[in-house]
């Protein structure tokens, strides 16, 4: 399953909900969700721990817009819109968490 998260983890608990309920698959961080994938963020330890189960992606355009594309947490893959489409196509189901 592909989990799509668009909220900052320090503002809303959507990403917590994904990590608490999901047992693997892919997580795509978009919009304000990309802040979860920045070095030095208080959420970083949780995200790193989640990498054991999930493959983590972040949308490149959203990283750039927020001026954080040069400080993405190691192990997170940046994808463009075409990569977004591939992720949706490659996963049997996907869920956009609100």
């Amino acid at each position: 399953m592909l989990h799509i998260v668009n909220k900052s983890p320090l503002d809303r608990n959507s990403l917590d909900a994904v990590l608490g309920t999901g047992d693997g698959g892919a997580i795509l961080l978009i919009e304000d969700g990309v802040y979860a994938a920045t070095k030095g963020n208080a959420y970083e330890p949780k995200l790193k721990a989640a990498m054991a189960k999930f493959k983590i992606y972040a949308l490149q355009g959203d990283l750039e817009a927020r001026g954080i594309s040069d400080r993405v947490t190691d192990g997170v893959a940046a994808v463009d819109y075409a990569g977004f489409v591939d992720l949706v196509a490659d996963n049997k189901t996907n869920q956009s968490w609100l």
Partner: peptide, 17 residues
């Protein structure tokens, strides 16, 4: 404060979005 501090983060490149 809180996520508001991100507003002032240097280097916004919004062309992609």
């Amino acid at each position: 404060l809180d996520d508001g501090v991100y507003q002032l983060k240097k280097g916004h490149q919004t062309k992609g979005i």
